[in-house]
């Protein structure tokens, strides 16, 4: 293990308040991501996996709507204590995000090239030739004709190409941590494979860390170094991917893995979660 983790989260709790009703979305979780590591966060809808990722760089609504407790350390710095300006230096630059639906994450009225250049200009104001950076970024995500794609609008691209453009934008400023929130859920399996293979390659080349949020154990098995399973705002199990997948300790993890229909293993009935295991 490395001496100091890139990201260290301690006792993070997230509470939403609406109409006097308080919902505890995340309940005092702690985790860290080491340099160059891929950590997968797995869970069903409502388990708190996405909100915990969004809370890291203050992407959630501000109080009183949403209250965040606990400490988030980025290279030893407490992100909670930073001013908005200081945080902007980190968000998008050192910690970048890609989301599930590239169609809604891209701005429909600007070209792909313009949107990538925008990110570069904000975070690397010293770079004069932003066009070269944009084309390089598009080339890095294996887009064949970067010049053409840079001039296209999001609606002219397929879902897979849009997600590539999103990845190009996220990686244009060489982040140290990429947070990928269900990056392939909206895509077809063949495109999913291409995107995951691409992320694997980029991670090798750039030695960056990835926080992968997903509900798909198949992707986790082939991509993540470590995995943590979330349920109702708590981490029920975490560990090396192979040991969690092959030998899950927590009954919820066991149940969840057993529910998944697998190719070539047809059963008379699918296994379901027992009543007490359900969210």
């Amino acid at each position: 293990m490395t001496s100091e983790p890139l990201l260290h989260v301690e006792n993070l709790s997230i509470t939403f308040t609406s109409h006097d009703r308080r919902t505890s979305a995340v309940k005092s979780i702690s985790f860290s991501v080491a340099k160059g590591e891929v950590l997968a966060v797995v869970g069903e809808s409502g388990s708190g996996k996405s909100v915990s990722a969004l809370s890291l760089t203050r992407l959630l609504p501000s109080p009183p709507l949403c209250q965040i407790q606990g400490n988030i350390f980025w290279c030893g710095k407490d992100l909670q204590k930073l001013s908005e300006d200081e945080l902007t230096q980190i968000r998008g630059k050192e910690i970048a995000y890609i989301f599930q639906d590239p169609g809604t994450s891209l701005n429909p009225v600007y070209t792909i090239g313009y949107q990538i250049a925008e990110a570069v200009k904000i975070h690397e104001p010293t770079i004069k030739d932003t066009e070269a950076v944009v084309l390089q970024a598009l080339q890095d995500v294996l887009i064949d004709d970067p010049r053409k794609v840079a001039q296209q609008y999001p609606h002219e691209l397929s879902g897979g190409m849009q997600q590539r453009a999103m990845i190009a934008m996220a990686l244009a400023c060489n982040p140290r941590l990429l947070i990928a929130d269900e990056p392939t859920t909206a895509l077809d399996v063949t495109i999913q494979k291409e995107i995951i293979d691409l992320l694997k390659r980029l991670r090798q080349e750039r030695k960056m860390s990835i926080l992968l949020i997903t509900h798909n154990f198949g992707i986790v098995a082939h991509f993540a170094d470590r995995v943590q399973v979330m349920r109702q705002g708590e981490i029920v199990e975490s560990g090396e991917t192979s040991s969690v997948m092959q030998n899950p300790k927590h009954p919820y993890t066991r149940g969840l893995i057993a529910c998944i229909p697998r190719l070539g293993q047809r059963r008379r009935r699918l296994t379901t979660l027992s009543e007490e295991m359900k969210a």
């Binding site: 399996v189 063949t190 999913q192 494979k193 997948m245 190719l263 070539g264």
Partner: peptide, 20 residues
């Protein structure tokens, strides 16, 4: 179909499914 896919498209589809 799953054990002996004949068409290249089926083969591609099957190989893209992550297994564990």
């Amino acid at each position: 179909i799953l054990s002996r896919p004949q068409h290249p498209y089926t083969q591609k589809l099957l190989s893209a499914v992550p297994r564990f």
